[in-house]
Amino acid sequence: MTKLATTKQITLSHIDKTYIVGEKPLHVLNDINLSIEAGEYISIMGPSGSGKSTLLNMIGLLDRVDNGSLVLEHTETSSLTEEQRAKLRRNSLGFIFQNFQLISRLTALENAELPLVLAGIDGSKRSKIVTKLFESLGLADRLQHLPKQLSGGQLQRVAIARAMVMSPKILLADEPTGNLDQKSGKEVVHVLEKLNLQGITLIMVTHDHELGARANRQLKMVDGVIVSDTSTCHEKGTKNEVA
């Protein structure tokens, strides 16, 4: 694994991605260039099929780029093996999905500790980490509950706990409030923003303009292209159009 000297946490240069649908090529990402610094709060918005989830999957190393380069945490990822990519995902990235992606037969505690299990952390240490996280997320009394016994907001908070157990530097959220009612959605966003304030880079894909507007930096995508990259300084109330 080659470590590159760069001040950026994530750098995407000339990224292309094409899927073959039937026999026709579908260009999902076209020449994406993006740099993200540590601790940024970014929302990616755009209509369905604009490529925002694909972009998030590329940054999350869930999918491979066709062309271009993706540097994540000073590591050029295009030359990594599947095993190296999996370990980088495990150690540096946290994922939050719209439909929570919890395993129904496992308790909340067991679901949340899965990345620690994969990393080979001891049971007692795992339990301590998860319990502490659950306390901070208001889930202390839900450790032994199965997913079917939890509300939507609680399920997403368990998923956030799972994303956070490895203390990742980057949190990737794909429509984190998409399956939640307004109140639960607000709670989840509040938790994510709190994590961002602690220095974790938060990249969130959303359809919700109100939610997207809360981010310090808002990317808008249309047809696989970033059409606008807006930085907002909430404290000062200013907006910067960069694209």
Binding site: A86, K87, R89, F95, Q101, L114, L118
Partner: peptide, 10 residues
């Protein structure tokens, strides 16, 4: 898919 997403190797 989830296991692989959260870092399980093949």
């Amino acid at each position: 898919g989830l296991l692989k997403a959260i870092g399980a190797t093949a």
